[in-house]
Structure formats: structure tokens, C-alpha cells
Amino acid sequence: MTNEGRQVVIPGQILGEIPALQPGRGTFVENKKIFAERLGVMNIQEKFIHIIPLKGRYDPVVGDFVIGVVLEASTSNWMVDINAPYPALLHVNEVPWEIEFADTEKYLNTGDTILAKVLSVDESKKLQITLNDRNLFKLKGGHLIEFEPSVYRRIIGKKYSMIEIIQKYTRCRIKVGKNGRIWIDGDADGIEKVLAAISMIEREAITFGLTDRIEEFLKKDAKDVR
């Protein structure tokens, strides 16, 4: 964590020059000068300048866990919305079920929600996702909310510490997709508490000690309930 990197940058802003610095994610180069290509926060790691976006669609990366909503089922695949610019394709070979031809709707239908993994992103940005991995499945019950994909890390906390604490105090099951979607399952009061905690995380400006503050908030809430 570098503090000098905490600077909001806007598209077209000059960030540095090659070779003193190197262009990273969210930057572009013209005449050896490095510019920001989008609204975000500048971060320098080992000479590489990255922009952590503050806004924008989810940019899929192979291996990401995402929460998808099925748009349509066809004979040998499904099209799934994962909050990216493009819908993702889920092929029948990429699900853990034996599916007869044209029987796709029996397993997943329009409006169903799945926890999936990004399988491939090709040059023309054609996306494929898979359910063939442990911990991937169709989500049933609970509640689904969306958040700005850029606050993903803040929501899960260091090594999932934030999510673990929230789960502990609310007795809810929580799955966080990197694509800006959270699935929460539990009783109504528990879900309400999770929503309050998450909106607090989104609002809080200072990340230092945020996990402790959220724990404090949930503890107090737990007492109030009793």
C-alpha cells in the first residue's frame, strides 16, 4: 500500500515518462509519455503505473469468480449477463450436468443466477464462463445486489477478512462476484444487516481500520436485536 499513489487522475492526464516509469493497467503511451486513460486512482508498483478505476463496467479477467444472470437458453448453450460490456457464453460442456440436446432450459433458465468463473476472453472480447469447478453452482434463494466493481477489494477485505466478519455476525452466507454483484442468503434480519454493513463499506472514505469498525457496528447491532 503506497500512500503517494492515492491521487485521483482523469483521462489524458500525464502520469510520467518512460523509462523512469512503465505503463501499467489503465494507461496509454504517446511519445514515451504515460497518460491516464480513465478516471481512477493512480498506483505505482515497482515502476509500473496502474490506474485503479473509480467507475465503469466490469472488465472480465480469466479466473475471476463472477455472479451471472441467465439471459437466454438455446439448444447447446446459455447467454449470461455478467455486468461486462458483453454477455458471456456458457456452453453445455461447461456445466456439471449431463444435458440432452435442447434440454438446457430444464437446468438453467432466463432469470436464474449462477456463481461462475471466467473461462476465456478472446481478442474480439468474446467471453466464456464455466460452472465446472468446485464452489460453482446455481444460486437459489437469498438476495442479489449490485455494487461498483471498483470497491470489490474493500468489500472482501484482506484475505476475505471483511466478508468473514460479516458472515459471523449476521449468520448469512455471502458470495461476492468480482463483477460487482453480491449474493446474500439468510433470514430477513440478517440480510438487512449485511446490506447496512455493505453500504457502510461503500460510503466510508477511510479504509484504515475499516474491518474493525464494521465489526463494532455489527456487534452493536447484534446487542440491539437482543
Binding site: V70, G111, T113, G142, H143, W183, A188
Partner: peptide, 19 residues
């Protein structure tokens, strides 16, 4: 817009509890 079935069910489940 496709409404996730989960959202639909959650809204009706809440309504049953008056919420």
C-alpha cells in the same frame, strides 16, 4: 432488463413479512 428470479422471490418473500 432481465429480472433475476432471486430478486423477484426476495421481494415477494419480504412482502409476506410486511416489508
Amino acid at each position: 432488463t432481465i429480472v433475476p428470479a432471486i430478486k423477484r422471490d426476495y421481494i415477494t418473500k419480504l412482502a409476506e413479512q410486511g416489508k
